[in-house]
Design a binder for these strands. Structure first.
Lengths: 121, 121
DNA sequence: GATCTAGTCAACCGATTCGTTGAATAGCTG
DNA sequence: CAGCTATTCAACGAATCGGTTGACTAGATC
């Protein structure tokens, strides 16, 4: 199941809404890193960086593997794929394929994807 | 120029980090809507909805056309395309094409001057 | 002109965010 | 054991967020 509920989508996009965390994800694309390694590029306390890691973890984009003293963070691309998929809905819009967009909108009238449904306040 | 600066990316992802605003974007995909029309699905004051619209506008995802009394909002897909493109960097990760990811990372070494630690195995 | 409608603005409030610091935990090392 | 390393946790403060209400502006309508 690739679709995430609205709440999880909130977490994912909110996590992505920080250059610090985007940079961390990017660094993680090169392979697993410890929290300390992730924190290194930034002029902030380790505790602050640790909170960013926690935010990414909460959003499901990081998987933590505690080995001895150090916590290794692995990138989990699932939520990124979900976000990408959510945005793809609008792809026909920026590629100019409005007919395709219209098809998507019509098709959707029957089945409501969770990623498009905002329910709470 | 498709790339946005980090600050603008922050605005875009932060704007997307709310189910309310995602719903507004989705409604806008069907065509331009007034602020009142965008606010209608939600159990919140018009002023609150207006703030959400402003957030989307600040992120560049909405274009406003004031005609007489009412403000018509048009979807501007540019920032969505940027976000989509940003996420595409990780696409090879979730499709399992790790070799492609590695190529992207290597290719990027030349173009990005930031203090990134090079750790090739 | 009076009034209704569409929307913004400013002030306010409670919750959350983003950073700090100092203390605590747990593993490694001499 | 003492002490270093890696990391979290708790408390705090400033800033921002998401909502409210009441006042305001501007266009439409009678």
């Amino acid at each position: 199941m690739v679709e995430l509920m609205a709440r999880q989508m909130d977490d994912v996009f909110q996590a992505l809404g920080s250059a610090t965390r985007r940079r961390m994800l990017h660094d993680l694309a090169g392979g697993p890193k410890s929290v300390g390694q992730l924190a290194e590029p930034f002029a902030m306390s380790l505790a602050a960086a640790s909170k960013h890691v926690k935010a990414l973890e909460k959003a499901g984009m990081i998987r933590r593997e505690v080995r001895g003293n150090t916590h290794f963070c692995h990138l989990d691309p699932g939520p990124l794929a979900s976000a990408h998929r959510w945005l793809s809905f609008y792809e026909s819009f920026w590629t100019g394929r409005l007919d395709e967009l219209e098809r998507l909108l019509r098709e959707e009238k029957g089945t409501i994807p969770a990623s498009q449904e905002g329910d709470d306040t």
